[in-house]
């Protein structure tokens, strides 16, 4: 019964969603990371579906706010990448950092990170639902493990997604600045994406 009720709700929600769109969006590619369902809240406290990020290219990573070594590196590396772009490219690229630690990374804690690192409004720091952290990590090929002391071991990467959520490139973060090859790939991709029209 509960299941039936749930599916009715799901159908109702998706009907509303599809009606509110003026035109049906093209089908999501099968290998899009937006194929997984997940709910997130950003640093401003706005709640939305993970799939709502579809529509423009994004550089995605996973981190946690209480991390003192690698995570500031991940954010610094993303910022450095952003600063290396020309203004037009910068406007077309979003940055998404997803928390591995939703228990502690409240929107307020994430807003604090955004302010400390002076992140502009292209950045979204996301707190997933507890149950969705693993699902998002699996979709992104990011591995992590909670340690007994409250820290996390995790893969430190920046991942470039196209506007439909397909992985274009990924780069391991080892420094305050990203791998120059990754930066070059992002630039090339953004130039190609804007040249290929504005759909």
């Amino acid at each position: 019964m509960k299941v039936l009720l749930r599916s009715v709700v799901v159908i109702a929600v998706s009907l509303v969603a599809s009606m509110s769109a003026t035109a049906a969006p093209p089908a999501l590619p099968g290998d899009s990371v937006y194929q997984v369902e997940a709910s997130v809240v950003d640093q401003e406290g706005r709640a939305y579906a993970w799939q709502a990020l579809r529509g423009r290219p994004q550089v995605v990573s996973m981190f946690y706010a209480h991390c003192h070594l690698m995570c500031p590196l991940i954010i610094a590396s993303g910022k450095s990448l952003q600063n290396s772009l020309d203004p037009h490219q910068r406007d077309g690229l979003g940055f998404v950092s997803i928390s591995l630690d939703p228990a502690r990374d409240t929107p307020a804690a994430l807003l604090d990170v955004a302010q400390v690192h002076r992140l502009d409004d292209h950045w979204r720091l996301l707190r997933p639902r507890d149950a969705d952290v693993r699902t998002l990590a699996a979709a992104l090929g990011i591995r992590y493990r909670a340690q007994p002391d409250g820290t996390f071991n995790h893969t430190s990467v920046l991942i470039l997604l196209d506007r439909d959520g397909r992985i274009v490139a990924r780069s391991e973060v080892t420094d305050l600045t990203p791998d120059p090859r990754f930066t070059a790939t992002v630039r090339e991709y953004l130039t190609g994406a804007s040249a290929s029209g504005s759909d």
Binding site: L69, R143, Y144, R145, S156, V157
Partner: peptide
């Protein structure tokens, strides 16, 4: 299991085709 992805040692090369080492930091 839910955390099956943590059950991996250093020798993992799953990401090798992308040139990624996919290793944990500090692990």
């Amino acid at each position: 299991v839910g955390d099956y992805a943590t059950l991996m040692g250093d020798a993992d090369k799953r990401g090798a085709e992308n040139g990624d080492r996919l290793q944990f930091c500090g692990a």
